[in-house]
Design a protein around this nucleic acid. Structure first.
Length: 256
DNA sequence: ATGACTTACTAGGTAAGA
C-alpha cells in the first residue's frame, strides 16, 4: 500500500497537477492539506475520474483537509469532535488502515496568539494519538514544525522563529511518545529530506527548505514500510505547490 | 530591509502562508 501526504496549497489551483500526479504516482491513499475549498466546490468529479473517492473537510479561503482513496473511505471524522473554528483535521479508515490528514496551525510568530493556538492544537493531536485504537495507524500532514535542526536548511537564521522552537518540537516528541514513528526520518536518519521550500528567492533551486510534512506511523506499520521518500519532482515545473508530497510504501501482506 | 512569491477574494489591495 502506498500512502502520501501533500499540502497542495489550493486544490483548485493545483487540480491539473494533482490529477496528473495521481496517474503517475498511483498512490492508494493521499492525505491532502490546504484545499482552500468549501465542500461544495471540491472537485469531486475530477478526482473520481482519476479513480479516487474523496472525504473532505473544507472551510473556504483558508485551511481545508481531505483524504483521497482508491481502497475505500469509511468512518470519516471531521475535526477533533470539539470546538475548533478552523478545518484542520480529517480521519478515515482506508483499506484497513486508520489515517488522519492534519494541517497544524502556522503559529505566525512566538508572540502571536496564533502560536498559543498552535501549541494547544498540537496538544489535542497528542490526545488523539494517545487514545487511538490498536491497529494500523497513519497520522500524516503538514505539521508546520521542523522536528530537529537537520530538518532546517539554516538553523541560525531561524532562531526565535516558529517551526523550530523548543515547545513545538517537544509537542512533536509527545505525539511520537504515544508509539508513533517519524517514518522518513527513521528510514533516512542523515538526509535533510525537506518537504517545503519558500516560493520566494529561488529557495527550491538552492535547496533552502524545511522538513515539516510528516508521516507518523505506528510501530507495526513502521516495520512493514518498504520505502519512504519525498517526491521532489512534484515541486518542479509550472505552478507547483510550495510543498512536495511525502510518500510511504508498506507491505501489508507478509507476516510480521 | 520583514522584502522576495502565490493564493483567495474580488477587481484594488489585503491577509495569510512558513
Amino acid at each position: 500500500m502506498k500512502i502520501a501526504t501533500w499540502n497542495v496549497n489550493s486544490v483548485a489551483a493545483r487540480l491539473a497537477r494533482l490529477t496528473s500526479w495521481l496517474a503517475d504516482t498511483q498512490p492508494d491513499v493521499v492525505l491532502i492539506q490546504e484545499t482552500k475549498s468549501t465542500d461544495d466546490r471540491f472537485p469531486v468529479a475530477a478526482i473520481a475520474d482519476a479513480g479516487y473517492e474523496v472525504a473532505h473537510y473544507g472551510q473556504g479561503q483558508w485551511n481545508g483537509v481531505a483524504i483521497l482513496s482508491r481502497v475505500g473511505v469509511t468512518d470519516v471524522q471531521r475535526g477533533f469532535g470539539d470546538q475548533d473554528p478552523e478545518a484542520r483535521i480529517i480521519g478515515a479508515t482506508c483499506g484497513g488502515v486508520q489515517v488522519y490528514s492534519c494541517y497544524v496551525p502556522n503559529g505566525r510568530s512566538l508572540e502571536d496568539p496564533h502560536y498559543r493556538y498552535k501549541l494547544d492544537w498540537l496538544g489535542r493531536l497528542g490526545e488523539l494519538a494517545s487514545t487511538r485504537p490498536v491497529g494500523p495507524f497513519v497520522l500524516g500532514g503538514d505539521f508546520n514544525v521542523a522536528p530537529s535542526d537537520l530538518d532546517c536548511w539554516d538553523p541560525p537564521s531561524f532562531l526565535g522563529a516558529t517551526h523550530v522552537s523548543e515547545p513545538e518540537r517537544a509537542a512533536i516528541r509527545a505525539i511520537e511518545s504515544t508509539g508513533l514513528i517519524d517514518l522518513i526520518r527513521v528510514l533516512h536518519p542523515d538526509e535533510p529530506a525537506y518537504s517545503w521550500w519558500d516560493y520566494r528567492g529561488g529557495a527550491f533551486h538552492q535547496n533552502h527548505g524545511l522538513r515539516i510534512d510528516l508521516l507518523l506511523v505506528d510501530e507495526t506499520l513502521g516495520r512493514r514500510a518498504t520505502a519512504g521518500y519525498v517526491d521532489r519532482e512534484a515541486r518542479k515545473g509550472v505552478k507547483p505547490s510550495d510543498h512536495a508530497p511525502v510518500i510511504a510504501e508498506f507491505d501489508l501482506e507478509s507476516e510480521g
